[in-house]
């Protein structure tokens, strides 16, 4: 690409002061990024679905045909529109209190995404801090933090969350705080091992010899280089948190009625699962699709972040 255009004589080799041939030019960064993003099918699907979910969560009040909390005992257990007795009034039917399932589903997106994002952020901050410190300092610090990580890994998340939630009483805030405090292990493990490799990178040495402060080195030299891996972990933990919220809500220790949590919707429908299966199938499918999409997104990001992804 560059050779065919070099000027043949020594004049190009004697550019005053440099004598360094040309610096190879690369195509503009953005076109490469978009090509990568959409060249990966799983990633593209994940991006589209998650993007849609975010839009739905933001515009839920505009999209929902009914008030998700409005009860209408006269219209209980209306089946979805494709069913013989369904109607366009309630596209996905109603629940045992006559609330519109579609509206509750749309509003439920808000709860799931909020939980996913906030939990991933809290646990990301905790886990990354611990992992980076352990990886960077090594020795005693690493031994102590690794011990904490191992302790955390030995705890069954669902049982601990259930126990604590039953002590404090379930609520949206409780679920977020509990999961945020419990799901940091993967952040810690990943950031620890990536930081360990970076600790002896010569650019970190260079910054240290200059007398850069520790926060500068950790935040400006180390963190940007582990951000790629952390974003991948973040997507996985979001999916994990959404599923755990559904589990806790299903068991009655999570989000409390009448909030339209998908897990709660499944729990409320479980008495009807044999004769009106859609009552639990619809929120179940929503949960499945969102979690799958987030995982696809994470896998895709991991592939992009793999060696050779940059440079």
């Amino acid at each position: 690409m560059t050779t065919s255009s070099v000027s043949p004589t020594a004049s190009s080799a004697s550019t005053p002061g440099t004598g360094l041939g040309e610096i190879p030019l690369q195509p503009p960064a953005w076109s490469r990024v978009t090509r990568r993003l959409f060249g990966h099918r799983g990633l593209a699907i994940g991006l589209i679905v998650v993007g849609l979910a975010i839009l739905i969560a933001i515009f839920a009040p505009l999209l929902a045909p009914h008030d998700p909390y409005h009860q209408d005992i006269a219209n209980r257990m209306v089946p979805p529109v494709w069913h013989d007795k369904g109607s366009w009034e309630h596209v996905l039917g109603t629940d045992k209190l006559g609330r519109d399932t579609l509206s509750r589903l749309l509003f439920g997106t808000r709860i799931s995404l909020t939980i996913g994002l906030v939990v991933a952020l809290i646990s990301g901050v905790i886990g990354t801090t611990l992992g980076v410190l352990a990886g960077y300092f090594g020795g005693r610090v690493d031994a102590v933090i690794s011990y904490v990580i191992t302790t955390r890994l030995a705890m069954p998340v669902v049982l601990v969350a259930l126990a604590l939630a039953s002590l404090t009483g379930g609520s949206l805030t409780t679920v977020i705080v509990l999961l945020g405090l419990l799901l940091w292990d993967r952040f810690a493990v990943v950031s620890r091992s990536v930081t360990q490799q970076m600790r002896d990178a010569e650019y970190v040495y260079a910054a240290r010899t200059l007398g850069c402060s520790l926060p500068y080195i950790l935040l400006r030299e180390v963190l940007p280089n582990i951000a790629g891996s952390l974003i991948v972990v973040m997507t996985l933990e979001m999916a994990h948190a959404i599923l755990l919220e559904a589990t806790l809500s299903f068991l009655g220790m999570g989000v409390q009625p009448p909030l339209p949590s998908w897990g709660l919707m499944v729990a409320e429908g479980k008495a009807y699962m044999f004769f009106q299966p859609w009552v639990i199938a619809i929120p179940g499918i929503a949960l499945f699709v969102l979690v799958l999409a987030i995982n696809l997104l994470g896998d895709g990001l991991r592939d992009l972040n793999a060696p050779g992804g940059r440079n």
Binding site: M1, T3, S4, S14, G21
Partner: peptide, 13 residues
Amino acid sequence: PGVVPSLVGHVEG
């Protein structure tokens, strides 16, 4: 002086 040329694409001469 200089650096090794890129071998991506058509190389002539």
